[in-house]
Nucleic acid binder design. Structure first.
Lengths: 148, 148
DNA sequence: GCTCATATGGTGTATATACACGTCAATCGT
DNA sequence: ACGATTGACGTGTATATACACCATATGAGC
């Protein structure tokens, strides 16, 4: 019968699925950063967005989404939360309806507050992995992000 | 003023944040697998859960969550969806309220249907990365998952 | 000017994730 | 016997993610 799946196939998936591993890693790592950032009242997703906005002052939601490999509509919702908290300002529609996004003063202050906690999370990871494996991991994630 | 954050710090985060990279990778990879599995009517999270259940017939929700590095409560919601679709059965409370979880016949059939699509996604990634970088990636993700 | 392709944005809906909290069952120490 | 501890479960609430769909704006070609 073709509608039964052998145990070997299940073991193969469990052992070798790249997506399973990538998601497991993302969940675990996210917990470390979210916990570290808790005192700053930010989650790592929000912190990452604020950094991207502060760094590049993106001229549109689409560009911001592209830079972070996020769905544009996901960025829309996340930005709405940040704006509600007064951390960013979403500008009016400009050319081709594009909206510029920029940090507010509160947003910059929150970033400054959060930064040391982010550093702690990075250091936690470095200690748990060791310098060599940390570098290996960076390289691998970079290659994977580029390739996919 | 200590409430301003220098551009160098922002560049440092954007370039070196392990969590940012891990989440970007997870999003990108997830899209590949979700799209590949679409014809089977499953998302990669659901497929992964079904595989874990089919492989181990876990004796409790907590064990299943542990095995996949998921929050227990997340697993609870995801299992509720799978049970609603008739793909799994969540047993009655046993020792210490533990509930055994097992695939239904429909669940096994769905797994058999989905498996070739998962293989396609794996092959897609292998082609885009190349064998060497794929192995490198596996190793790095494995180390990261263990360490964190 | 009109039409159409393209770029940008937002909403509806559904799933995924996780913390805080409460509930219930088994076990342990006294 | 019984209170405290531990283990397991589920819900409330909030955020994160993404597809489907629709609305609006610009520019190209006619």
């Amino acid at each position: 019968m073709s509608d039964e799946i052998p145990d070997e196939a299940l073991a193969h998936v469990a052992a070798d699925c790249v997506c399973r591993r990538a998601r497991m890693v993302a969940r675990k790592v996210t917990r470390v950063y979210d916990e570290a950032l808790r005192p700053a009242g930010l989650k790592i997703t929000q912190f990452t967005l604020l950094v991207a906005i502060g760094k590049g002052a993106p001229g549109s939601v689409s560009l911001l989404a592209e830079a972070l490999a996020m769905e544009r509509t996901t960025v829309v919702r996340n930005l709405q939360l940040l704006e509600k908290d007064g951390l960013i300002r979403i500008g009016p529609e400009g050319i081709r309806r594009a909206r510029a996004i920029r940090l507010t003063r509160a947003g910059r202050e929150r970033l400054a507050t959060a930064y040391p906690y982010w550093e702690k999370a990075q250091e936690t990871l470095r200690q748990r992995l060791g310098d060599d494996d940390l570098q290996l991991t960076r390289t691998a994630l970079e290659k994977l992000a580029r390739a996919v």
